[in-house]
């Protein structure tokens, strides 16, 4: 399976997927850490967190997949939602909580 297919499979077979640097317990970047905190505040249950630092092909491939040059990247039900700035503004407006609820 090539990287783009692998990513497509990851985001479509899991309700909530976050591509991040490091792990939820040990994020290696402030933006990834913020993304995790927001998801936890939304009461996320089935979060799949993928550490891009562990896989260079995914790290490059995810930027192509979403046409988005930065990490973290959040996907809900296969749809690209945004990075940490968008997650924060959606959370502040109560939109992200609703999306997570439908995915839980």
């Amino acid at each position: 399976m090539d990287t783009q297919e692998k990513i497509r499979s990851q985001v479509t077979s899991n309700p909530v997927v976050l591509y991040m640097k490091g792990s939820p317990k040990f994020p290696q970047c402030g933006f990834s850490g913020l993304a995790i905190q927001i998801l936890q505040a939304c009461g996320v249950k089935d979060l799949v967190a993928i550490d891009v630092l562990a896989d260079p092909a995914i790290r490059d491939g995810i930027k192509v997949y979403a046409n988005w040059p930065t990490i973290p990247q959040l996907y809900i039900n296969g749809e690209f939602i945004g990075g940490s700035d968008i997650m924060r503004s959606m959370y502040e407006q109560g939109e992200l909580q609703k999306l997570i609820e439908t995915a839980n």
Binding site: N67, P69, F80, G82, S89
Partner: peptide
């Protein structure tokens, strides 16, 4: 927001 960010990323690619 996603489209706005993509606009900016393209200009600063």
């Amino acid at each position: 927001q996603v489209s706005r960010h993509r606009h900016i990323y393209e200009l600063l690619a």
